[in-house]
Design a binder for these strands. Structure first.
Lengths: 210, 210
DNA sequence: TGTACATCAGTGAACGCGCGTTCACTGATGTAC
DNA sequence: TGTACATCAGTGAACGCGCGTTCACTGATGTAC
């Protein structure tokens, strides 16, 4: 398929590795991350299960790459859709980042869960690197807001962590149905959440570093 | 054991239902919630697997009760350890609630995960009720802080949800190792998080309800 | 230009595993007479 | 006070399941000569 010959012989797939990763992501759009199995993946790709092991040492390793791809595409979304730094107040930019974070998670819940549920980050350098790059992006955005507000720069990390925690917690609670628990239904809507991203910045501004 | 006879005949257990729930909680202190199996539970209780089905219609139903017990003991912790309302500024009380929430989660991570991961809350009234009671407690505490700060009362729910999201997200990120990702290690410490619980209140104070 | 051969991406069958659940049963309990 | 019997909490073996992984293999590719 990727070769110039355009052969129809199916014995050698040509690009099985990428096909499997794409199939996994496609499958996560339809079912929970816990339900994803190698056998089903191979079936989708039209290949025997054993073929998977030509390209990945284990299921866990494959999933780590899928998770890493998730982090990468979150960063890509930000890079594409966020206005460049300096073109608007840094705090507002941080709020937008939060909004898009939530959009991302809700658009692909199972993929999102995998990104955060996959154990042993340290064991898979690809995943570790992708997650770090993602956090760095958050840190820079939050950091700019903290600096612009005149707060102690040592709070930058804390603000980034708090923002991430807020977004992650909101998404996870929403996905597990734990936020729509009271009868009223008058809950925190996704649109309202970004407003809370001003919090890590604003509330810290007058605070000394204790 | 619970009967007055104190019999040593083991055929009729006497209190198997409670024993199984307790065994499940004990087991969650040692291993992940995903690894918990009925067979192991029965083994621990010294009983055949089939006996479990005398007391619970399915594994899911048993786990729902375990999760519900978690919510109940979180509320119990608050009721025991939080100073009574009015004895200190409401915002500060909300911060303490957050701190104890995090303590609770970090003290029993697997049990905590089960409380939030167990699917289909609506399918298990026991769990639903316990979770609702827990959220009500948060809502009251946050609400008092919102009112005391003079903010629009319609923000009470939002503040409670934001606080819960912040705590839940922080705990989940910490447990999955996603917060200690940057090399510096100069992260948001558990002790610092409560400070962020002032955020939902403070930052909203001047805001109109858009 | 044609052939031998190393390389390696695939196949298909089998492995062992632990799981949740069901079944026909057995043993202890307590109540009716 | 003793016996028959209904009740029901337990047993132990078996069911079928889908899983991740391994194995000896086969078929296609491309390079050396």
């Amino acid at each position: 398929m990727t070769t110039a010959t355009g052969n129809t012989s199916t014995y050698h797939h040509g690009n099985l590795r990428d096909t499997l990763l794409a199939a996994a992501i496609a499958q996560l759009a339809q079912q929970s991350d816990a339900a994803l199995s190698l056998r089903e993946l191979a079936r989708t790709a039209g290949v025997s299960v054993a073929a998977v092991y030509r390209h990945f040492p284990s299921k866990e390793a494959l999933l780590a790459e899928v998770a890493a791809a998730g982090f990468a595409s979150l960063v890509a979304k930000w890079e594409t859709e966020l206005p460049p730094p300096g073109s608007l107040p840094a705090e507002q930019r941080f709020q937008l980042l939060g909004q898009q974070y939530i959009e991302f998670a809700l658009a692909a819940p199972a993929h999102y869960r995998l990104m955060f549920e996959h154990q042993d980050v340290r064991q898979f350098p690809v995943l570790q690197a992708a997650a770090q790059a993602c956090f760095q992006y958050v840190l820079q955005t939050a950091g700019a807001a903290v600096r612009e507000a005149g707060a102690d720069p040592r709070w930058e990390r804390a603000a980034a962590s708090a923002g991430w925690s807020l977004g992650h917690g909101y998404v996870m609670l929403l996905l597990s149905g734990r936020l729509a628990m009271t009868d009223g239904g008058d809950e925190l809507s996704p649109a309202m959440v970004p407003r809370f991203f001003q919090l890590p910045v604003e509330a810290l501004t007058p605070a000394p570093l204790s």
